[in-house]
Design a protein around this nucleic acid. Structure first.
Lengths: 239, 239
DNA sequence: GGGCGCAGAATATGATCAAATTTCTGACTG
DNA sequence: CAGTCAGAAATTTGATCATATTCTGCGCCC
């Protein structure tokens, strides 16, 4: 009974050279990981929602092993948590956890902006400016999903410039923890009051002013965390 | 019926090693993860040494899937790294990476000691004192492996008291990165010049002096990182 | 010296086993 | 007599394994 759609995902391909040779570069578990990561980051998986492994295999048309490995990886990064039994779910943020995330972000990300200033090039600035322009358009259009993705892309791109992979990776793991709640914030307050210290940050980067870049990043983080805290407090009060 | 060689690991049932079948509480992938984690932390796996998945299945008498999942988890935590091919290995520390680790440790662990001061109890202090006594004995006896394990246990125990799971988890991931090099340090300099700011730290905890605990932890970290940096520089010069 | 298999290892799949949640039944109590 | 709760069967879901397939590395032959 439960085995019927397994065959229609890959038809009998007579020519194994054309399509296969064009994209054999993506390992399945990595593709699954990226999709699930984005789903967590951009709110496609709501906090508290249980993750079923078999549901993902059918949803992503993937095997069981890649899904399991992606779940393990995301669990290690804090994007998912194993509830006492062997079920995984997107963790719900509480104020105590949020405070720790804010502490770590304020220690990590301003430092990354500081370091990026030393290694930035004109091409990098153009790239960041492009992202920020699209981001402002998304805000103006009320495009929540676009805002989330572009905001994430802006910070990720900047931190990659800092040439500090450990710090950048740690900061990326933190984003996985509060990403789902960012979606909640936007759903509650819309895109009107979103923080945008990116202009100040870009100015500082153009001038090579590392201290100003650090300060602007700290401001941006504080603004965002205040919004998330407000949404969380409201949720706790409504319960 | 096709399981012939899989049975011989369970055949010696009446003898000593079959506690697992009597206590089926531990999932296999978790047991494998813990063993590999300890092997990385305490230098049983040397940096640069390639990890073969089939070697681990036979070495740990485990299946293939649990080993794969443990490798994914450790890779996500930075304990292992995937080199371009699909081989994994214990990463070798360079000075640039070490600097980032020091930066993060100095931001995280003193804060954890600071927070632990508020929540500590007499039982906790007794526990930490016990560990530190054993640690001093290990140093006096030149027991490198014992020193590594007890030093790790001391810090882990303290950080668990701080009631800040995100910070503690992040700090634990950092230990996975410089753990292998700690073994190298000990192999080079012995246990004579090892840092031991634990006495100061314990005094501060007993007095409830959070600021002193923070400072003592920072000193302990700096001492240890200086040692690791010296060993790394020596290695780089010898090559 | 370079292209071509060949061995070995890693990835991915489906099947099988075990555990847990759910559901259904039945009895007991108010 | 009805409602509720305990317990057991059943279904769902996670964990593990054996196997097939694919890719990498290396040696060999041209």
């Amino acid at each position: 009974m439960p085995m019927m759609n397994a065959s229609l995902k890959k038809e009998a391909s007579a020519t194994s050279t054309d399509r296969q040779s064009l994209l054999p570069k993506t390992p399945a578990h990595q593709a699954v990981y990226t999709k699930m990561r984005d789903a967590v980051l951009f709110g496609d998986l709501a906090p508290g929602q249980p993750i079923t492994i078999q549901g993902l295999t059918t949803m992503l048309n993937a095997g069981m092993t890649p899904v399991r490995e992606a779940i393990r990886k995301l669990t290690a990064e804090g994007a998912l948590e194993m509830q006492g039994n062997r079920r995984a779910s997107v963790p719900v943020l509480d104020l105590h956890t949020l405070e720790q995330l804010e502490f770590m972000r304020l220690n990590l990300e301003p430092e990354l902006a500081f370091r990026a200033t030393s290694h930035i090039s004109d091409g990098h600035i153009a790239q960041l400016t492009q992202i920020d322009d699209n981001l402002n358009n998304a805000i103006a259009a009320g495009d929540i999903s676009g805002y989330l993705r572009l905001n994430h892309a802006f910070h990720t791109t900047l931190y990659a410039i800092a040439q500090a992979p450990i710090l950048a990776q740690s900061a990326g793991a933190l984003w996985l923890r509060f990403g789902p709640s960012l979606r909640v914030v936007c759903g509650r307050f819309g895109t009107s009051n979103l923080p945008d210290k990116h202009a100040e940050l870009l100015d500082a980067l153009k001038q090579g002013n590392a201290e100003a870049a650090r300060a602007a990043t700290a401001e941006d983080i504080l603004q965002g965390m205040i919004q998330v805290r407000a949404a969380l407090s409201e949720d706790a009060a409504a319960r």
